[in-house]
Design a binder for these strands. Structure first.
Lengths: 226, 226
DNA sequence: TTAATAGTGTCTCTAAGACAGTATCCG
DNA sequence: CGGATACTGTCTTAGAGACACTATTAA
């Protein structure tokens, strides 16, 4: 931890970038913002910004501040630190460290018409992104898909009050492959992760479905044994 | 990503800290170094240091450099980024960002007598550590234990050439609970993770055991379904 | 009644854990 | 041969997936 005597050391730039996902028309989408400053001015990129050292209490606070400021989204129901990217070339402004965050937002929390400069693009078929944001998005999708196999994460893409069919669809959209209905119901039932909203039912011209909500605002991880 | 006009923003200090584990006398141990600079001079802490911005190619390179310099260990067979800790108080030198790494080293790569200033302590019963290193170690142990449930990670604690009993013991030491022998053999066998070293056998005054090695120098993760 | 989706019961097959039996070494 | 540990085969039980059957609504 000694201060280098040779004067070679410069302190890296520290930024925060966030990958926020939502479901729209049953497809997974990513939030992007059009940059209004150099570098890459005018390009679509992940919402990001500098850490404001004295004001922000940590990088998570910086991420929240930037999401609120740039995406006009209130606190996402799930957001967590993803990975830290670093190096001399990923940002043209110099040797940089980017602490990346990953989160999900229910569609109900997203306005129908997005504010100017904010775009919501389907994750399959994203344009090339500036900086190393392609790598960040790839890692975020890996994490999201992986967590879908052992946690309640996909449920955070849904509004409070969803049917079993909607929940299964959220899992399938994230995982990218179908699940067997019987097994899905059984597995979810074992996890003590959702509860029936008493009496509440929903249906069109068929048998109405039971409506559920998460039992906890915290992510629930499933059991695993070696 | 605009430069703040108010002048409030200072760039945080960027450091790297590493949690390296090994098995010694069948127990999990953590590497610590006695600090020879302020702050916390003379205290045992995780091996850490500043990122050398132009010289290091990224924070992983910084972690490797610091492990080699401070622990006198060659490249650990497994090391990965753990988490990034940040805030105004975790380091008395100011608002800081610490990118933490976690790794394992086989006992065979550790000299019997450790160099001056380096200590290897059992993970149960560590002294309180400076900075927020207690939190970092806690997170590293969580990651290590979690990965033991679905990957070949504990095998990296062993030298090349281990018996099935030694492998099971490594898993049990990391997980902290016994495993059933039959199931363990079956599960490991399915993973295509280890291979027999042909002809090689080891045993005292009993039937000699088959000796194995990892099939890959990369971590192997087991299958998982929802 | 029919169409459509929700929800349940059950059958089969596979995998997990328990346990006993066989193999192979040393002394 | 006896003791010790390595390894394998098999039995029982539990869970996964497949599938069919029942339930409940609107038209």
């Amino acid at each position: 931890m000694e201060r280098a005597a040779d004067g070679h050391r410069e302190n890296p730039i520290v930024t925060v970038d966030s990958c926020l996902f939502t479901l729209r028309l049953r497809r997974l989408h990513l939030f992007l913002v059009r940059r209004d400053n150099a570098p890459y001015r005018g390009h679509l990129a992940l919402p990001g910004g500098y850490v404001h050292a004295p004001a922000d209490t940590d990088t998570a606070a910086a991420a929240k501040r930037i999401v609120e400021t740039k995406l006009h989204l209130e606190a996402p129901p799930f957001i967590e630190q993803l990975y830290t990217f670093s190096g001399p070339v990923r940002d043209p402004r110099g040797w940089s460290v980017a602490v990346a965050y990953m989160g999900v937002v229910p569609q109900s929390q997203v306005p129908e018409r997005l504010p100017e400069g904010i775009e919501l693009l389907p994750v399959d078929g994203l344009p090339p992104l500036p900086f190393d944001h392609d790598r960040i998005v790839e890692k975020a999708l890996q994490r999201l898909r992986n967590k879908a196999t052992y946690s309640s994460l996909p449920a955070f893409l849904l509004p409070d009050g969803f049917t079993m069919a909607e929940l299964q669809d959220a899992y399938e959209q994230v995982l990218g492959h179908p699940l067997t209905r019987t097994t899905f119901r059984r597995r979810i039932g074992e996890q003590d992760m959702i509860e029936e909203i008493p009496g509440k039912m929903r249906g069109g011209s068929q048998r109405p479905a039971q409506v559920y909500r998460l039992t906890s605002t915290a992510l629930k991880e499933f059991e695993r044994t070696i």
